[in-house]
Nucleic acid binder design. Structure first.
Length: 286
DNA sequence: AATATATCCAACCGCACAGAT
DNA sequence: CATCTGTGCGGTTGGATATAT
């Protein structure tokens, strides 16, 4: 069943919230937490459905909401998280303290998609448009050679999703402490990285075809990685997983002299199958 | 100044899932 | 096990505002 129990009720107000409604909702929640959203409207004296109250609280009234424009760091983070997680806005929002899933989703749809498209990158796949269309035979060949890797990554991705779900639950219980970024040892970024097209190999644990052959050009590596780079949040978990453990070494390939607030940007991705550490970056998006 | 068009974003809708009964 | 209820998520919409003509 859905939320229809509250939304079906005729006569409930819809549309933009008034100041008075905001005040009622705020003062109710301030005094006693929201409790059951279904029961809240009647108790708070609001002629809204509980779902509407919840949305208003989460997206607008919550005290820890960060307002204002997204910084370039936040934008980079969104792009990279989107490459990892797809349209899972709530999961992405977990890594951007003070930003809501709705806000990120809106920002993606109104700004980022256009920027990526302008830069020749398909926002859905994070691949350059010509490659996303599969116009290159070479690319197809290389794609097929990586199928095994991708299959393994897919299983890792599923684990990552489960992990994210757990993280979401945990962070919900620590609202007073905004979620911290969860990839110790993994993350360094600088804006200078985003201004280049360079994508280079970092530490390579095993010599693999993936490392030595498959990607003769940086952009090809990016396009391959972009479609299957999902495991960063559980990297540490994966290291402990016997079936995929390798002599993985994670290290920064970036100078790191210029770290802005978005230390959660993931320039470095480690493939748990091949033990590669890879850094990648998007072209400058303006 | 008036109108048309584009852009933004708050809010709604429908669905899926988990837990309770 | 089936059903109900509450919650959360992602996609979409529509009104407000900005910009272009």
């Amino acid at each position: 069943m859905g939320p229809s129990s509250c939304c079906k009720n005729a006569g409930l107000k819809k549309g933009p919230w008034t100041l008075e409604e905001d005040r009622k909702l705020l003062s109710y929640i301030k005094d006693r937490d929201h409790g059951s959203w279904g029961a809240l409207p009647a108790k708070a004296g609001l002629e809204r459905c509980g779902k509407s109250c919840r949305l208003r609280w989460i997206n607008y009234l919550r005290p820890d909401i960060k307002r204002g424009k997204f910084s370039s760091g936040e934008e980079h983070t969104i792009i990279q998280l989107h490459a990892l997680l797809g349209n899972r806005w709530s999961a992405i929002a977990n890594y951007l303290p003070g930003r809501t899933d709705n806000e990120i989703k809106n920002y993606w749809n109104t700004h980022v998609k256009k920027k990526l498209a302008k830069a020749g990158i398909d926002p859905a796949t994070h691949k350059p448009v010509n490659l996303a269309l599969g116009s290159s035979e070479t690319h197809q060949l290389k794609s097929s050679t990586n199928l095994d890797h991708m299959a393994q990554w897919e299983s890792a991705r599923l684990e990552a999703e489960a992990h994210l779900a757990r993280q979401s639950k945990l962070s919900a219980f620590s609202a007073s402490a905004p979620p911290q970024f969860l990839m110790p040892g993994l993350v360094t970024m600088s804006d200078s990285m985003f201004s280049s097209n360079s994508i280079g190999l970092g530490e390579v644990g095993d010599s693999t075809e993936l490392a030595s052959e498959s990607f003769s050009k940086p952009i090809e590596m990016l396009t391959s990685f972009a479609s299957w780079v999902p495991v960063v949040p559980i990297l540490n978990d994966l290291r402990e997983e016997p079936s995929i453990r390798r002599s993985t070494k994670v290290e920064s390939c970036i100078g790191g002299e210029h770290m802005e607030e978005s230390t959660n940007c993931w320039d470095h991705v480690v493939d748990p199958v091949t033990s590669l550490t890879v850094s990648f970056s998007y072209p400058q998006l303006n």
